[in-house]
Design a protein around this nucleic acid. Sequence first.
DNA 1: ATTGAGCACTGGTCTGACCAGTTTTTGGAG
DNA 2: CTCCAAAAACTGGTCAGACCAGTGCTCAAT
Lengths: 251, 251
Amino acid sequence: MAQSEDISFRLERLILDGGLAPGQKIPSERQLSFRLGVSRALVREALHELQGRGVIKTYHGKGSFVASILPGNPEAEDSSPLMHLYSGHSRTLYDLLEVREQLEGQAAYLAAQRATNMDRIRITRAFERLGETDPLSNAEPDHGFHQAIVEASHNPVLVHILNGLKKMMLLTVQASVANLNPREEMRQTIMKQHRRLYRAILSGRAAAAQKAATSHVRFVITSLKQLEEQGAPVTRPTDAKNLHCTNIATQ
Amino acid sequence: MAQSEDISFRLERLILDGGLAPGQKIPSERQLSFRLGVSRALVREALHELQGRGVIKTYHGKGSFVASILPGNPEAEDSSPLMHLYSGHSRTLYDLLEVREQLEGQAAYLAAQRATNMDRIRITRAFERLGETDPLSNAEPDHGFHQAIVEASHNPVLVHILNGLKKMMLLTVQASVANLNPREEMRQTIMKQHRRLYRAILSGRAAAAQKAATSHVRFVITSLKQLEEQGAPVTRPTDAKNLHCTNIATQ
DNA sequence: ATTGAGCACTGGTCTGACCAGTTTTTGGAG
DNA sequence: CTCCAAAAACTGGTCAGACCAGTGCTCAAT
């Protein structure tokens, strides 16, 4: 009945449809009031409702941003039982990657189908950034590339799950992974896979995109297993700073 | 910093310290704005924050009342902000099913490959129980069947994620779903799909199992969409008791 | 006593203004 | 031309006052 509830509902859907990029800025209050055809006061009330629910964060002079929902719990409360149970077990990494193989494939498939022009621009930008940085610290751009693809799938559930998987990988992953990326022929292969994935999505070839993504993850899996068999150390990184070494696993 | 946060904080304390019992009426907006020395708009924003947090309920013409804080399960685990964000949005159900289509398929695939004898026994037992119960309350055995399959995949991550998805579906799902299962031809089709899935897994035909599972979920999706287009009500169940009506969606 | 109109509440919404931070633009100094 | 500071153009935060829309009470006319 209340229009303000309707507004906050529509805002939620706007956030969901928009890909639910955590940390992403949402339109300004005045803009929203114009778009939705209501007064600014109403928009503000709706935003406060979302704020109370922890969906968004608002900063004076800057704007409102989608709250990162996963990392939002500094307390070990929700993720702890699972995390603690899993982390440290070498096997878990492969379990995670096994699921990721499937979901990254689906994300690529959907992205190829549903990507808007804005999405294509974001993906392209992320893709171009892949080659710019030096090999050792390219965890960030790589993450951005895959993130852009997942968000282009326009399935918030998928975004959420893959984010969760990634986070768990950071806790589970082994230091040995660091050895994988620096190898020149590895980098070549991965770059090629990325390019294939990129082209498939941009040209809307959904099946090809899915195949490219799954085979990419599968390649990472087999490479890791191979590496492990060669007697690579199976130790976890001790501090968070070293976590970027997991770039190969998040590709 | 923000005064409105301070206001909502003071209101919360007023509710707690004031010994305001659940269901009790809190002062009117105009009264609060006078008492707190701020504008009514500010009070309204603060109230909306509390409303979003589920602390109060507001009724047009009557006033705002302290909500009973009991009904929520005390365990913080499933009451993540994500849940609140998703639940109630019709689209989310399809987002969930879209992901499930993929993961149930993978679970079936892996189960066909990895199921131990013990797993086969469990799956068989669950399968046989499918036909025994009356059609209206067969949410339990159905859930058990799929659960047994997922666990036979021997991928804890997969088990965990699918459990989470199922839990979220229970919060998201619409009452209209209840109409799907009782229909005779639906039940026939679903039963046939279950049998195909069961046989494929037991005989170790992984690809066939995967196909059976995904097409099963896809069937549910299209059926639901069809039903929704026919003008079925898109209302959420009001009490937890009706949630078992979601069996069709969790199959 | 019953009923109805009217009034005094309640929240819901709008308008337009102004304050206070942040970011971008711009124009002049070097 | 470059660079940095002033200014303009954003952002959210707050206010005042008005009017609409439900709810419930009161009191007079029947």
